[in-house]
Amino acid sequence: MSHAANLPLWAALLVALLLVLGSGLTLLGAIGLVRLDSFYKRVHSPTLGTTWGTGGILLGSMLFFSMIEGRPVLHELLIAVFVTVTTPVTLMLLARAALYRDRMEKNPEVPTFTAVAERSSEVVVKGTKNGEPEKS
């Protein structure tokens, strides 16, 4: 890390904080992926890594290279914009695919759209365990 020797202390501390925060949030999201017990709950956990996890590491990297090279290095912004735009799209597609598959198999925990429409505007399925069929 000899290239970082002449970095001012405050910048090093800030970069370190952002890096650890970002990777920590990504790790928490991945732990959620393991611990939560149904697919629809697990959909929520990778967004921890893609919002503030990615954001922290990208900010840290931007700050680090800007200080090292003595000019604003902003190309990490491209990754940030790209990740913010694409993650919701993939998660939406995946959730809809899962919903479609569950409805095809008549999984009782997943509401049909007409059932939702009839009971409009409030919670449709409550339950701590969405019983999933075990085979894939």
Partner: peptide, 16 residues
């Protein structure tokens, strides 16, 4: 600052 950064990068790589 190099030492701080080395530690932070190592920790975050372990986390990742």
């Amino acid at each position: 600052s190099a030492a701080i950064l080395l530690w932070a990068v190592t920790i975050s790589q372990i986390f990742l």
